[in-house]
């Protein structure tokens, strides 16, 4: 991450402060650690635990945790540990890509609406209002129903649902920053609009957006599980923590471990991203020293 570009121009966050905030406090350090762990599982999972997550073993259906299968096996005899590790990439992908997509597009919309004002503002923000007024699960559901269920479409649906959140924040921030002296000064110096928007305004509005993004990450993973619950999530046999939890519901009595492990995985990741989000907010808060 490019630290200085994301900070308020008047109060740049020094590299020292990044380190001090993220690693020096137990909550923040924990967040960094957990997010790092989740990312490690997503990238290196297949090397850490070599079993095929999609290979069934019909002779070992619903085996409890034990040697050979430390997390047990699922209803088709597949290794749960391998599926958790493999599922981390799909789940993180859903969370990261959908939030990042919504963040980028929403910021652009908010930036344009806030900076130019007038009819562009009215039109864009009314569109955002329409999306916002739509019940979010229903919108995601309708989008995946139209496009057909897949990983990509689940990501797209979740991104669209989150779009107005970022657009609103970006617009509000742009309105404030646009009035500030140093932006006026740049304008007076004859810098182009694109230059002012991207190099002056944008760096000064990112902090709350990134904080919001880290918080929405959790809800994106949960939303994917809801789409799975309704059969419109990521398709089998590809595991995600959400669809694993969905399957586990059918076997709560016979095989409770099926529900525990993906539940814990979601919890740990959500915990990590929330702690990280809190730390980022503290970091960008000029009153914190």
């Amino acid at each position: 991450m490019n630290a200085p570009a994301t900070a308020l121009a008047e109060a740049p966050v020094s590299a020292r402060r990044w380190r001090a905030t993220l690693l020096g406090r137990p909550r923040a350090a924990m967040g960094v650690l957990l997010v790092g762990l989740a990312c490690l599982c997503a990238i290196a999972g297949p090397f850490l635990w070599p079993l095929d997550p999609n290979a069934p073993d019909f002779a070992a259906i619903l085996s409890p945790p034990g040697p050979g299968h430390p997390f047990g096996t699922d209803d088709l005899g597949r290794d749960v540990l391998a599926r958790i590790l493999n599922g981390s990439s799909a789940s993180l992908l859903v969370g990261l890509v959908s939030v990042a997509g919504a963040l980028l597009a929403g910021t652009l919309i908010g930036l344009v609406a806030g900076y130019f004002g007038g009819w562009a503002d009215t039109l864009l923000m009314r569109m955002m209002d329409v999306i916002f007024a739509f019940p979010s699960i229903l919108l995601a559901l309708a989008i995946t129903a139209v496009l057909g269920p897949s990983l990509g479409n689940a990501v797209l649906a979740i991104a669209v649902v989150n779009l107005p959140v970022f657009a609103r924040i970006a617009r509000a921030q742009t309105l404030v920053v646009g009035q500030l002296d140093f932006v006026e000064a740049r304008r007076a110096l004859g810098f182009g609009t694109a230059d002012i928007l991207l190099r002056t305004v944008l760096p000064n509005i990112t902090a709350p957006l990134i904080v919001q993004g880290s918080l929405l990450f959790a809800s994106a993973i949960i939303t994917e599980s809801y789409l799975s619950f309704l059969g419109l999530g990521v398709q089998p046999p590809t595991p995600t923590w959400g669809n694993m939890l969905r399957t586990a519901i059918s076997f709560l009595d016979l095989a409770p471990w099926l529900a525990w492990f993906p539940g814990i995985a979601i919890f740990v990741t959500v915990l990590g991203f929330n702690l990280l989000g809190d730390a980022l907010r503290d970091l960008f808060d000029p009153r914190e020293g």
Binding site: N54, A55, P56
Partner: peptide, 16 residues
């Protein structure tokens, strides 16, 4: 298949 748990599981068994 539809999203009925039995049908999804059947499809996964056929798939495997």
């Amino acid at each position: 298949v539809t999203n009925s748990p039995v049908q999804v599981r059947t499809a996964e068994v056929i798939q495997a």
